[in-house]
Amino acid sequence: MKLVPAALAMLLAGSLPALAHDVPAEVVKSPPAGAFKAVSSLVKLPDFLPGMGQLFVDPASLPAGPFLAYDHDGALVSTIYMLPVKDLNPDKRFEDLAAPGGNVDHVDVYYNAGHPGVEEPHVHLVLWHVAAADEARVAQ
Rank of each mutant, 00 (worst) to 15 (best):
V126A: 08
G34I: 15
L49H: 14
A20C: 00
D71I: 11
G14L: 10
V85D: 03
V126W: 06
A13E: 11
E26W: 14
D87S: 13
G51N: 06
D73H: 12
I80F: 00
Y111A: 01
G114S: 10
G51T: 13
Y111P: 04
A64G: 04
I80V: 12
A139H: 09
A38L: 02
K92A: 01
D105S: 10
V4K: 12
L83D: 06
V28W: 03
A35F: 01
P84F: 01
P17M: 04
A75M: 10
G51Q: 02
L55V: 04
Q54T: 11
H124Y: 11
P59H: 04
S78M: 14
A139E: 13
S61Y: 04
K37D: 01
D47G: 11
K29I: 07
L62W: 05
A139N: 07
A6T: 14
P63Y: 09
G14I: 10
A99T: 05
A64S: 08
H72A: 13
V43H: 07
G102M: 15
R137T: 11
A136W: 10
L68W: 10
M1N: 15
N89P: 05
G74M: 02
L68I: 08
S41A: 09
P24G: 06
H106Y: 13
V39Q: 01
L76H: 02
T79M: 01
H129R: 10
P24H: 12
V107K: 07
P116G: 09
P121R: 14
D96C: 02
L62P: 00
W128D: 04
N103Y: 15
A136F: 15
K2L: 08
D96F: 04
L16H: 06
A113G: 07
L8G: 00
G117H: 03
M10V: 14
